[in-house]
Amino acid sequence: MKLLAMIGRTCLGAAETVGGITIVFARILRAMFPPRFDRDETWLNLYKVGVKSYPIVIMTAMFTGAIMVIQSGQYVKQTGATGLLGWGAGYAVLAEIGPVLIGLMFSGRVGANNTAELGTMKVTEQLDALRALAIDPINHLVVPRFLSMMVMLLLLTALGDLFALIGGALTSELILEVDYRVFFHGVFEGHLLDEYFTGLCKAASFGASISVISCFYGLNVSGGATGVGRAVNQCVVTSAIGIFVWDYLITYLAN
């Protein structure tokens, strides 16, 4: 009986979360058509989300590309198929590893920060103050964050892809002694444009998903500082689940 009750509670909790996230997403869409969001706040968020994230994205991406090359290096050396090094690393990075790792990094840095920010505003009544001043928090706070995260994760992933390939090329040159031109020849001859665009499509959907999830948890914080901490934790976990669900769906559709 206890087990049944626990299963019931879990299912109700999950349904409540999914329902809440869907409602936040619907309200975002409603505020965008016709556009009623705050443009200044959008520019500010583009800066906060994008410009301040690029150093960590570049570093993550370069190491990712390098690791891909090191992982495949021993097989390349055994078989002498150096021409496949660029293709293999490029395929993995552009289609899968790049968007997913950058997405996870982004959710930890930007999504968690967003939940904490909105959550703190909620517990200090700043969201109520906005509403009392006739300003809709969805138009003023949520939509700018949604747009910024979606656009910036896409651009950061495009940038990260580039640096992942540079990291891979440097590693192949310095550690495996495979000329970087051979590496890039493998990338360009591998016809990876589809993978590249699939990866960008994933990045945009991850950005949208992280923003909606982080805003949902931020707007629904209760219980002061403890509540904010709990919401940040839930945001990071749910965003990671969201990333893998979207990754699965888009990979399935693209293949």
């Binding site: 200090t124 009544e125 700043q126 109520d128 103050a129 009392a132 006739a134």
Partner: peptide
């Protein structure tokens, strides 16, 4: 929203941004 522009509220905990 229109009505709220005619009503003011001073919060107990300030609620300054």
């Amino acid at each position: 929203q229109e009505l709220r522009t005619r009503v003011g509220l001073v919060f107990q905990n300030y609620a300054l941004f």
